[in-house]
Design a protein around this nucleic acid. Structure first.
Length: 141
DNA sequence: GCCAACGTTGGC
DNA sequence: GCCAACGTTGGC
């Protein structure tokens, strides 16, 4: 099991929108960045990822579950781009803001802080546990 | 709305 | 293969 973080602008696709997709979830399309794509290719069914709202909110609002392995992104003809499918796993009881993440020394190396623009990021088990603790999600899934 | 950071593109 | 120009992202 690996942990990840998915970024999305809520005005384009929010966690609420993901929940509305139900168990089938949706393909996480539109990613046009090699590092982000490589992260998706490394994902396995059942992997979990934080769902982060960028631009508005600036907080981790929920957890998503990978429900299909990387496959061609149907939103483009370019065969380089692949994506996984994700579905909503659960809300976090208390959203964790970027400000809180930045203020926590344990999370100083998180990609969210260091690689601000990467849209699909890996999260270490230690970071996962810490953010879950901050979100009042005990035990961490 | 601005601007910094950074990834990608394309000319050489 | 380098590097300058450009476009996009995302925090503020």
């Amino acid at each position: 099991m690996n942990y990840w973080l998915f970024k999305s602008e809520p005005s384009v696709f929010s966690f609420e929108a993901l929940k509305a997709k139900g168990k089938a979830g949706t393909q996480w399309d539109g990613v046009r960045n090699y590092a982000a794509r490589n992260n998706m290719k490394a994902m396995q069914i059942g992997d979990l990822g934080f769902f982060y709202h960028s631009n508005e909110g600036l907080d981790i609002v929920g957890i998503a579950e990978v429900c299909a392995l990387a496959h061609p992104d149907t939103s483009t003809d370019d065969p380089r781009w692949e994506c996984v499918d994700i579905r909503a796993y659960k809300d976090v009881p208390k959203p964790v803001t970027l400000e809180q993440v930045k203020a926590n020394p344990k999370l100083a190396d998180m990609a969210l802080v260091r690689l601000g623009r990467l849209s699909v990021q890996p999260v270490t088990p230690a970071e996962w546990k810490e953010v879950c603790r901050m979100a009042d999600l005990n035990p961490a899934p």
